[in-house]
Design a protein around this nucleic acid. Structure first.
Lengths: 195, 195
DNA sequence: TGTACAAGTAATCAACCGATTACAACCTGA
DNA sequence: TCAGGTTGTAATCGGTTGATTACTTGTACA
């Protein structure tokens, strides 16, 4: 369950990373307001006081988690663009995205960033990140504005299906919808997402 | 700012409605965990104790708000299907949806329902609601599974754009993206959503 | 009229949370 | 070796929150 259980002392840089990994999971499960610094500390195997002191505040920690999540999407998309295996680029991007948000911590971090769009500290991070991704699929992957928009739309539906855990439902309509969403490869989708 | 400011005593049924209206706004602004029963009470013009006693708990109140939000989508979609003005049904549904989620309370209630997909009390409400909407656009509006899926995807992108408040941004790429999302009628979109 | 129930609140409680402080343990190098 | 910086924690504090209790006020109707 916990991300780190090693006991020995760690250099500050590594400790930061382990806290960020734990925070991504806990923020994902409970949301920004719902998560506590103590839950994050327990998941990271350290004291609550150390979590707060390392990042200054709970809000600063969440902003850093949000930036990391956007950064991982960027990196995955650039890799998918560079690794041309003959399939259309949108297809490669889609698969890269699904593999990424199969990590529930990242998925739910994204959703929480969206719903905090009017927060003065987190809103700008979300807007900049989303536009960065839009520019990336338009300019670097070469999609038209219309195709880029459709691609993002499919991604947002994937978010919703995974968040609601509609994969894993055996309702026939759910199966039909999820099959549409994952482009037909339901088995692979469920394996990735743990449905 | 507040939804109700009338002072006189109200029968329980009407008071329930006014609390639900206030709760939709406050839950939307702060999220489930972030909203307090006292903020809801203030918005409804009554005491915090009465809010809790009327619904039993904060969670029960949120579940009711969530059910109402799904119900409003259902109702709006049925109306859009029935009111055939010659435009394609998907177009009518899209406009009805935008008019609905221009209400930030409803929009953010939906997003919070999604991110609470693994909550034992709220998750089932979200799954049932989403599948109900899927069946509605497929069976009653007559869209193919593929078209229905695309329609829902566009809706989820609309959610994200509105939540992040990308309408209202003057970044040229944001304008381009939002124009795609709203089907070209940027002015009308911004008027509705207050960007 | 008066009483019984419905509408509504003030006051309070136990639990929780983020942050601060003060301190302990460990490591490095001069 | 011992001084100083780094890693880490225990204890605690002020503020907040959802919920409970005991109470007041209004009103329908027999």
């Amino acid at each position: 369950m916990s991300t780190m259980e090693t006991r020995p002392r760690l250099p500050a840089a590594e400790r930061r990373e382990s806290i960020l990994a734990a925070a991504s999971v806990v923020f994902g499960e409970r949301g920004y307001a719902g998560a506590t610094t103590d839950q994050i500390a327990t998941a990271a195997g350290i004291s609550q006081a150390y979590v707060v002191r390392t990042f200054g505040s709970k809000e600063a920690l969440f902003v850093e988690v949000a930036r990391r999540a956007v950064g991982r999407i960027e990196a995955a998309f650039r890799a998918a663009i560079a690794d041309d295996d003959g399939r259309p680029v949108a297809r490669r991007l889609g698969q890269a995205y699904i593999e990424l948000v199969a990590d529930r911590g990242i998925l739910l971090s994204l959703l929480h960033i969206f719903s905090l769009g009017s927060d003065p500290a987190i809103g700008p991070v979300g807007r900049d990140g989303f536009l960065t991704i839009y520019r990336l699929v338009r300019d670097e992957a070469g999609l038209s504005p219309e195709d880029a928009s459709h691609f993002l739309a499919e991604g947002m539906l994937i978010n919703t299906v995974l968040a609601l855990q509609l994969h894993g439902s055996d309702d026939p309509d759910a199966v039909e919808l999820v099959t549409q969403v994952c482009g037909g490869d339901l088995g692979h989708f469920r394996t990735l997402a743990g449905g």
